[in-house]
Amino acid sequence: MSLRPGPRNSITDIDGLLVGHATDERIGSGVTVIRCAGQWVAAVDIRGGGPGVRETETLSPENIVGGIHAIALSGGSVFGLAAADGVMGYLSERQVGMRLRPGGRAIPIVPGAVLHDLNNQGDKDWGELSPYRDLGARAVAAAGTDFALGSVGAGRGAMAGYVKGGIGTASLDLGDGLVVAALVAVNPVGSVYMPDGRTFWAWPYEIDGEFGGHRPAPHTPPVSDPTPDHTRLRDLGRLQPGANTTLAVVATNAAIDKLEAKRIAIMAQDGLARAIRPVHTPFDGDLVFAIGSGAVALGDERTRQWQTARIGAAAADVLARAIARGVYHASGNDGVAASNCAV
């Protein structure tokens, strides 16, 4: 029996996850927030050469903090790291977070990561205070089970090579109550398309034509040079360290620990390699967060290892699909801009 997506084909097929966007058309940028119901186990794996991050070291398995309450993905390069401040303030005021003493202030743990979209046509003359803190608060306030894909939130100013990037999501039901899903903001220097310009590298993983159903022509020759035209990308200002990034979150409802979350994040990086060529370049800040709700037990140690490998393998496939969906639904590409995330 072939595996199927969840009912929404979305990261919100994981019970307890909500997603919200805030988009500022004037600056041509935005924020996307993934909110957890409670404190969820999390880890991160960073492969790109120019990451922009916040609170990622907190997730290291040797550190004491047990989990997170939300993740803030943002445009705006380093200025976008302020989005997590808005998320943190919003959650703390609503009594969401850790407490170090009874009656103490709620302390939300909100890792963040940013992509570079400062070279697009939006107005970046925002003065001493950037708009991203406010956008972060607005995004978490808007979080729900249904959300738009494409050129919205953190994907508003994203590019994928020469075409528009954006927000994508996908899910997979593994049976026995176990679900794996992904959300991604796609902004790589590499291409998501094969040389024909219409078939996604991720086409072998597509389910039900979720990103157009294009297939390579019969007898398509092997690809000898998948690297984009460096001259054009340099002219666009994209061949700079940290100027391009794919930000991903993979999620499961399994009861994983921090070490298992780290292994799943590592395995999920293969999804970027399946969907983007080249990837993890010096110019990208690619990273994958992995989070788990703890709802589905994984059994004894031997079973846990097997299930962790199974979840990680599925996460890579789901992430490849989410990347293609993000570009497919972006403004000016084959899909409809900011379309609903249902298949």
Rank of each mutant, 00 (worst) to 15 (best):
M1C: 15
L3S: 15
R4W: 02
R8K: 10
R8G: 01
S10D: 05
T12G: 03
I14A: 02
D15W: 14
D15S: 12
G16V: 05
L17A: 09
V19A: 05
G20L: 02
G20Q: 08
H21W: 06
E25A: 11
R26L: 12
G30F: 00
G30K: 00
T32V: 04
V33L: 07
V33N: 00
A37S: 12
A37V: 14
Q39P: 11
V41K: 02
G49A: 09
G50F: 08
G52K: 05
E55P: 05
E57I: 12
E57Q: 15
I68G: 00
A72G: 07
L73K: 05
S74I: 00
G75E: 03
G75K: 00
S77F: 03
G80Q: 06
L81V: 13
A82C: 11
A83G: 06
D85F: 01
G89S: 11
Q95N: 13
V96I: 15
R99N: 14
R101H: 13
I107P: 07
P108E: 04
I109W: 01
V110P: 02
G112M: 08
A113E: 04
V114T: 13
N119M: 15
Q121P: 10
G122Y: 03
W126F: 09
G127L: 06
G127R: 10
E128L: 14
L135E: 04
L135A: 07
G136K: 08
R138G: 08
A143K: 02
G144M: 04
T145G: 08
D146M: 05
D146C: 06
S151T: 13
G153L: 02
G153R: 04
A154S: 12
G155N: 03
R156G: 02
A160T: 04
V163I: 12
G165K: 05
G166V: 01
I167A: 02
T169M: 03
A170V: 07
S171H: 04
D173F: 14
D176C: 14
D176F: 02
D176H: 10
L178V: 08
V180S: 04
A182T: 06
A182Q: 06
A185R: 01
A185W: 00
P188K: 05
G190Q: 01
V192L: 08
Y193P: 04
G197W: 10
W203K: 09
Y205Q: 11
R215P: 02
P221I: 15
P222M: 11
D225T: 15
T227I: 11
T227V: 13
P228S: 06
H230W: 11
T231Y: 14
D235K: 11
G237H: 12
G242M: 14
A243M: 13
T245E: 13
L247Y: 03
A248G: 07
V250K: 04
K258A: 01
A265K: 04
I266V: 15
M267G: 10
G271L: 03
G271N: 04
A275D: 01
I276N: 01
P278D: 01
G292S: 11
G292F: 00
S293Q: 06
G294P: 10
Q307R: 14
Q307H: 15
T308L: 09
R310S: 10
G312C: 08
D317E: 15
S331Y: 11
V336L: 12
V336W: 04
N340F: 06
C341G: 15
C341P: 08
V343G: 08
